[in-house]
Design a protein around this nucleic acid. Structure first.
Lengths: 199, 199
DNA sequence: TACATTTGCTTAACAGTGTTAGATTATCTA
DNA sequence: TAGATAATCTAACACTGTTAAGCAAATGTA
């Protein structure tokens, strides 16, 4: 009975279509506006049949997350294989990670919980820059006069911010290690950047 | 006519109540399940009156965001004032930033778009650690044998990850500076951590 | 005081969401 | 061809944000 297999193949195909359609919608309109009925529309079915392939909406998101991690792992592995020197490998691997995030923005958002509902509205909020300015100011002071270009200061500011914000995000989303460990990492990173701020 | 003022005061109070109620609900049940009707319930009104104080739901979120930035700025300013040495100031300021994030988890989430719908489910996803393991492995190799404790390697891994993830998040949410600048910051940070990885 | 107007608030509804149960249709089996 | 089974859809439920209409009490005016 080859028909059994044909049917199984068809089922696997619509399952895959559901995932593809979801990602398409998200790429076009963002996670916020992904709905079961829109997915159904795209695969030319009605909403309830989706529940024959996934337990619920979260099931779809979870599967896409999984796929994301697999692509990421592949990319990183390939980057590693392009060198034999460990330091170079590591650098390339992180750059691959970086590239993955920007080539698969939506997947990265899903995987690491980076999302923003009101985004462009926030740019017109002066309060958002109050704290930033203070940091910027101190960093400028810390940098030798001969290095003190706007670019250089800005770079250092973003480096600081990235470390702290990154560490916070990781902990807010999937509570990394314990609080003591985090304090250690934080102080470590801070002291490191401050120490070599002129390089 | 003092009654005009009394009424204005009452209106200001319910406006404030709406914001407080919203934050309460979010602290108890998360952003996901914040609804206009729940807010109305908490302030003992019906949903439509909220629209007399805020244009829509996003208006409430935006106002909370603004309040968040103001608290953050205050905290950072206070931290700065506790020292006169610039390097020490900067360190204390970032620690204040860090503390703000964990004392006001929900606000920080709102302000910087850190959110995760399916969180505890993701822990049971082995694919999520595929790439992590590769990084971990390389980092271990790069660290001198005498430093190679689990704690130390873990710390370095998190430092790397924080920098890169932080930079990515910042760019995904409110597209920071241009791509060239980002590449610069990334390479800068990577080379820096790798160089001083044994310290 | 009597009427008119404004204000504060509610009910009811619309269009959308995720999800489920029941009915319907198509396909396969005997 | 008749009956069983699988595939699919319609309708509904409970929820969401949001708006319009209406009611009732407070207020202003004559």
């Amino acid at each position: 009975m080859g028909s059994k297999e044909r049917i199984a193949r068809l089922k696997e195909e619509t399952r895959s279509n559901i995932l593809d359609a979801s990602l398409d919608i998200v790429k076009e309109e963002g996670w916020q506006s992904l709905s079961m009925r829109k997915i159904a529309d795209k695969i030319e079915y009605t909403a309830p049949i989706i529940y024959e392939y996934f337990a619920n909406k979260e099931g779809i998101l979870l599967e896409l997350t999984r796929k994301g991690y697999l692509i990421l792992a592949k990319d990183v592995r390939e980057a590693m294989s392009k060198s034999t020197d460990t330091a170079t490998q590591l650098e390339h691997m992180w750059i691959a990670y970086w590239n993955f995030a920007f080539e698969n923005k939506e997947l990265y958002r899903l995987m690491y919980g980076v999302d923003m509902n009101c985004c462009e509205l926030k740019k017109s909020m002066p309060e958002a820059e109050l704290a930033d300015d203070m940091f910027y100011d101190r960093i400028e002071l810390l940098i030798k006069k001969e290095n003190r270009t706007e670019d250089f200061v800005c770079r250092k500011f973003y480096t600081f911010w990235s470390v702290i914000h990154g560490l916070i995000s990781i902990n807010l989303v999937n509570k990394g290690r314990g609080q003591e460990m985090n304090q250690h990492i934080l102080q470590d990173a801070l002291k490191g950047i401050i120490k070599y701020i002129n390089e």
